[in-house]
């Protein structure tokens, strides 16, 4: 097997660039989805709220002010081709990119070194890093910024294997209504179904990165996504909880094989500013 050597500093540069891009400008599909939702609202406040978000996106880019003061904790997914040898420490490379970007672009440092002692690291590092093996000789780097307001609304429920789709939809509705304005709706909702508790939550994170305007390739799951969306958009929560039709901008399911006794369902509520980017090295 032919191997390819990838210097670790290329990962540092990729992480820093991706953080910069997504901190000051929404991915195209996200911005477009917010505009579509604004056109679909008919109350003044719901429409205004969504138009403010559209304007926020252009202002951030033009004026060099981050989209949100919560510049997030950085989640990095690395898919490393098995023919690639990375020359250097992966964790140091990623965290170096985080430190550089948060310093250079005046982003808020929100990471504390210890959950109970709560001392700010001052650099926004360390990132949450997920490494997975892949085929080939490339490395895919995905950066996903997650804010505290929406992450605090995360939820996990272990269902009975005999529970029905409708039970899952009821649980999702209850969670989103209870979260209300806190996670900054319209949400991009990631739903992890199956696996174990931890994989369900990880899949809920990965699911939203499929991006607005996409549907699950399996028609059964695609239909479930549509039904969840319809239910949530009928709750009345609306943009920023002010009331209206747009409670979610998209629902994204990612499933995994599970145990005969288990049916975990994990929810990743992402705010309207779904900030992510990907590059292949």
């Amino acid at each position: 097997m032919k191997t390819r050597i990838l210097p670790a500093h290329l990962i540092t540069n990729a992480v820093s660039d991706l953080i910069y891009k997504t901190s000051f400008s929404l991915p195209y599909a996200v911005g477009k989805r917010i505009e579509e939702m604004a056109d679909n609202e008919d109350t003044e406040l719901a429409k205004t709220a969504l138009r403010v978000l559209v304007e926020n996106n252009s202002l951030a880019a033009e004026e060099g002010i981050p989209l949100c003061q919560d510049c997030g904790i950085v989640i990095v997914f690395l898919e490393i081709g098995q023919q690639v040898v990375i020359d250097g420490s992966i964790a140091e490379a990623v965290n170096g990119g985080v430190e550089e970007a948060y310093r250079k672009y005046h982003l808020r440092k929100s990471v504390v070194a210890d959950p109970l002692k709560r001392n700010n690291t001052g650099t926004n590092a360390p990132a949450i890093i997920h490494v997975e093996p892949a085929a080939g000789d490339r490395v895919s780097v995905t950066v996903y910024l997650k804010g505290g307001g929406s992450e605090n609304m995360s939820s996990l429920k272990m269902f009975r294997p005999t529970d029905r789709d409708s039970d899952i939809i009821d649980y999702i509705e209850k969670t989103v209504v209870k979260a209300g304005s806190n996670p900054c709706p319209p949400l991009f909702l990631g739903v992890g179904i199956g696996g174990t508790a931890d994989t369900a939550m990880l899949n809920a994170k990965k699911a939203v990165l499929r991006g607005p305007g996409t549907r699950h390739p399996d028609p059964e799951y695609a239909d479930l996504e549509a039904r969840i969306e319809e239910r949530l958009n009928g709750t009345g929560v609306g943009p920023l909880g002010f009331g209206g039709r747009s409670t979610v901008g998209g629902v994204f399911i990612r499933e995994a094989p599970t145990h005969i006794a288990m049916l975990p369902v994990a929810l990743n509520l992402n705010c309207h500013s779904l900030r992510y980017g990907r590059v292949e090295l």
């Binding site: 403010v52 304007e55 202002l59 951030a60 981050p66 989209l67 920023l240």
Partner: peptide
């Protein structure tokens, strides 16, 4: 009162 959540750049102005 609430203001526009997630409109950090807009509100900074």
């Amino acid at each position: 009162f609430a203001t526009f959540g997630g409109a950090g750049a807009y509100l900074a102005k």
